[in-house]
Amino acid sequence: MVKVSQVMHGGAVWIDPDAPLADIAERMERDDIGALPVGENDRLIGMVTDRDIVVRGFAEHADPLQLKARDVMSEPILYCTANEELEDAVRLMERRQVRRLPVIDEHRRMIGMLSLGDVAAAAPASLAAETLRSVSAHHP
């Protein structure tokens, strides 16, 4: 079976919970990514997605230029482990309808990210198609 570590992209880093939304958006654009994990005191505490910025940053009628990562991040954080079977991680993505999962090692340190794109590139076609359908389905 394929392990998450064989498919994920490594080198993911997190942002501080007090990072301003403008800085987060700029980094997402520069790095061509749609999500950034949020960490504090060496622990993963949330995730900020481009959707979080738009929906929570603007819909709450607050001044988005005054908001920080902690104001819009999704929690609790979902993650998978590097030694986990890819299919198990994919099932979590399907159940929770998420496109990205932080990957942690045996020491609970974040070592990478598993994205829907990673799954599409490396998983068997039937699993990739099923995952795409499930993750992209309209929320109930």
Rank of each mutant, 00 (worst) to 15 (best):
M1P: 05
M1F: 02
K3C: 04
V4M: 11
V4A: 10
V4P: 13
S5M: 12
S5C: 12
Q6N: 09
Q6K: 15
V7Q: 02
V7F: 00
G10A: 14
G10N: 09
V13I: 13
W14E: 11
I15H: 00
P20E: 08
P20V: 01
P20Y: 03
L21M: 07
L21F: 06
A22F: 10
A22K: 13
A22S: 15
A22V: 12
D23Q: 14
D23W: 08
I24Y: 05
A25G: 05
A25T: 09
E29Q: 12
R30M: 07
D31Y: 09
D32E: 12
I33P: 00
A35Y: 03
P37A: 03
P37I: 03
V38K: 06
V38A: 07
V38Y: 07
G39H: 07
G39W: 08
D42H: 14
D42G: 14
L44P: 09
I45F: 08
G46N: 06
M47N: 07
D50F: 04
D50L: 00
R51K: 13
D52E: 11
D52W: 09
D52S: 13
I53Q: 10
I53D: 11
I53T: 11
V55S: 09
R56L: 03
F58N: 02
E60Y: 05
P64S: 00
P64R: 01
L65Q: 13
Q66S: 15
Q66T: 15
Q66Y: 06
K68Y: 13
K68T: 12
R70S: 14
V72P: 02
S74A: 15
E75V: 08
P76M: 11
P76Q: 12
P76I: 10
Y79C: 10
C80E: 02
A82M: 04
A82C: 06
E84V: 03
E84W: 05
E84P: 03
E85Q: 14
L86E: 11
L86A: 13
E87M: 06
A89L: 00
V90P: 12
R91P: 01
R91H: 12
M93P: 11
M93Q: 10
M93D: 08
R96H: 15
Q97N: 00
R99Q: 06
R99Y: 00
R99T: 08
R99D: 08
I104L: 15
I104S: 01
R108G: 07
R109I: 00
R109T: 05
M110K: 06
M110V: 12
S115F: 00
L116P: 05
G117D: 14
D118W: 01
V119W: 08
A120N: 09
P124A: 10
A125N: 06
S126V: 12
L127Q: 06
A128K: 11
A128F: 11
A128E: 10
A129N: 12
A129V: 08
E130M: 11
T131C: 15
R133F: 02
S134C: 01
H138S: 13
H139K: 14
P140R: 03
